[in-house]
Design a protein around this nucleic acid. Structure first.
Lengths: 242, 242
DNA sequence: TATTTGTATGATGTCTGATAAATTATATAT
DNA sequence: ATATATAATTTATCAGACATCATACAAATA
């Protein structure tokens, strides 16, 4: 059998592979500095070009962080880090009905998350959510961007109450994207409806929060369902008008 | 006071930013070729080094694909592409109880997904799931890797039946990771329990499938809950023994 | 002594120019 | 017209140079 007819990988890719493997195997720990470029050149016996391009790729993947004049360091694999990459994916996605699909996805998973939050919540969580509501109320009517961010924050806090980092990592982006959607869809809001829309949203959030305070899992789930139904309806209507 | 001189980004980063922006704005469409390196040098008035490093970063992000001797092409932003990045994050994650957190995450979201699948399923979907079951049955007892992959395939198919690409993208990794977990946890299976474990798993899958065939949303959800309860218990027990 | 300033060293960032290897386009021969 | 050989284009890799930044340490200043 022919063993290695497969197109041999480029040097850059080989270096990247080996370095990544080394990091994954624990040879270089989080925060630790990896060898300098010239050292890597000697280790792999390749030019600086190959090393640098491999390093660039790895930094784009969030595996390492390069600091000019200092060196390259193994970055912490964090939720935030991964979310950035996911966010970029969504931004690049040209899928036209991405917005609706995202809301649909939320309709599927968020009620159960709300129920979970009602089950797990501590008093500290309640404080955080209440503070969010306060900020929302005191937010100026025309500060739509801040309002969208606070909205996102509310749902993200709910997600974090579930206490599952894996879910946080994976589902975080579908909330943090909503402000962007909102900005693109509600670009020209009919000012008369602004107050009404905000009050409606506040009411929904209050209903959700109330159920969570009471540790009412079913109630929280239902309140979330209602909230998302209206959210979806609003988007559908606004998209139609475009 | 002096206004901040905003740390100017490196040339590589600037090029990457501009190029990404151009692609996102639709200047270069999916599958289309972007300008050659030397052209980009002229456009941005920088050296090939800067251009190449920007291109490498973008290819690492899955935005473009570089073909030696041909050029760089805007790649389709696919679910698979983003999933790869997510998978890498999980592989690099050193979180010790990642396995349990992942199973917990599945316990939260998968019952509702099963219910959704029961609602949405077509006859074609049923055929696919049945074929998976057949393969699983005819799979040799000691082919644990293949068995784990088929298991993963079953759950992934369920996920795809929901018909929501956003969810597929985000949740796909938590299934595709299970084979790796399985390999690391059940490295030395007590051979006597192999048959028992497989039969149990088959039974659970059958229960789930049956409910889906009947479009029984509650039944599918419950069957999935039971399945994951046992899955979790198995892992907990095996991890203890380590 | 404590703070600031100057300086040397080593790291990444960028440029230039060259050669190799893969692809694509062109020309040629049958 | 088809197939093949050749040329042109493009990315891959290398080498070396200088610029820019970070850091540590010595020197100067208060």
């Amino acid at each position: 059998m022919f063993s290695k007819l497969g197109q041999r990988k480029s040097l850059t890719e080989q270096v990247e592979e080996e370095l990544t493997k080394a990091i994954r195997s624990g040879k270089y720990l989080t925060g630790q500095k990896i060898p300098t470029e010239s050292e890597l050149c000697e280790i792999f016996n390749v030019s600086r070009t190959a090393v640098r391009e491999a390093v660039k790729k790895m930094s784009a993947r969030g595996i390492i962080e390069v600091r000019k004049g200092s060196g390259a360091y193994v970055s912490e694999v964090s939720v935030q880090n991964a979310s950035e990459i996911l966010n970029m994916f969504f931004e690049l996605s040209s899928n036209k009905d991405l917005i609706l699909q995202t809301i649909d996805a939320r309709q599927i998973v968020e009620p159960i998350l709300a129920a979970r939050a009602a089950k797990n919540r501590s008093d500290h969580h309640i404080d955080l959510l209440k503070k969010n509501m306060e900020n929302m109320r005191s937010c100026a009517l025309d500060a739509t961007k801040r309002e969208a961010e606070l909205d996102n924050d509310f749902h993200n806090k709910l997600l974090s109450i579930t206490g599952n980092e894996v879910l946080e990592l994976l589902l975080g982006p579908i909330f943090s994207l909503m402000p962007k959607f909102k900005a693109s869809v509600f670009a020209k809001p009919t000012s008369g409806n602004l107050l009404k829309a905000k009050n409606s949203m506040l009411e929904h959030h209050e209903n959700i929060l109330r159920a969570i305070v009471l540790k009412d899992e079913v109630g929280a789930s239902e309140a979330m369902k209602n909230h998302l139904l209206e959210t979806r309806a609003n988007y559908v209507q606004s998209i139609k008008q475009l």
